[in-house]
Amino acid sequence: MALPEMDTSVGHSFGLEMDGIVIKQISEVSGLKMEQDVIELKQNTADGKYVIKKLPGRPKPADVTLTRGLTDDQNFEKWAKEAQFGRMNTARKGGAIIVYDFENNPIKRYKLHNAWPKSLEIGTLKAGDNSVLIEKLVITCEQIEVE
């Protein structure tokens, strides 16, 4: 039986879930990437030709950047402080970036294993500016898994 055709997803609604806390006010997520090293094996074949074989190496999870408008929610700051002061037993968390459909049903999860905040940046403060003040949280993790 063939699988039914599916519409592609629109990346308009997503959120972060860490230890049961869901934050949906995120405006941008970047860096969701699964990558691995490439090992080059250089050798000669039986007939004397030089070939290079490419083999899969170690996985290299990327840093994920979350951007949202500045609010009075302190979750990003509290989490960043845990890592800043070396309390890694509480700073390392498991969680996921969740993509939702138009009816707010989760359609894809990008699980982050042993994630912790690498940096927290507040947008530029400029007198007379009327743009939204943002904060960026960069999360590093040991593995990204798609569900």
Rank of each mutant, 00 (worst) to 15 (best):
I98R: 06
V29R: 01
E103A: 11
G69L: 03
R68D: 00
I144V: 15
D73V: 11
D7M: 09
G48C: 01
E35N: 14
Q143G: 07
S27E: 15
T90H: 07
G48F: 04
V10E: 11
D63C: 12
I98G: 02
A46K: 12
I139P: 13
I97T: 06
K118A: 08
S13W: 10
I98A: 05
F14T: 06
K54Y: 06
P106C: 02
V38P: 01
G31D: 00
T124A: 07
F76M: 03
D72T: 07
L133P: 04
N104F: 04
E35M: 07
L32K: 01
G128T: 10
Q84G: 13
A80C: 13
K108D: 00
K118C: 03
G69M: 03
A2K: 10
Y110L: 10
K78D: 11
I21D: 04
L55D: 00
N105W: 07
G31Y: 01
S131H: 13
M6Y: 15
M6T: 14
E77R: 07
K60P: 09
E5I: 07
A80T: 12
D19L: 02
A115Y: 08
Y110T: 02
K60A: 13
P61F: 06
R92C: 09
M6Q: 15
E5G: 05
G11Y: 15
A83H: 05
E28G: 04
G31I: 06
P106E: 03
F14V: 02
K108R: 11
L133A: 15
R68A: 00
I122F: 15
L55K: 12
N105I: 10
G95R: 02
T90Q: 13
I23A: 05
P61N: 04
G20M: 03
S119K: 14
D37I: 03
E121T: 15
Y100F: 14
I39M: 08
E145G: 05
I39N: 06
K49Q: 15
Y100A: 05
K42E: 15
I97F: 13
I21W: 10
N114Y: 05
G48R: 03
L137V: 08
A91H: 05
D63A: 11
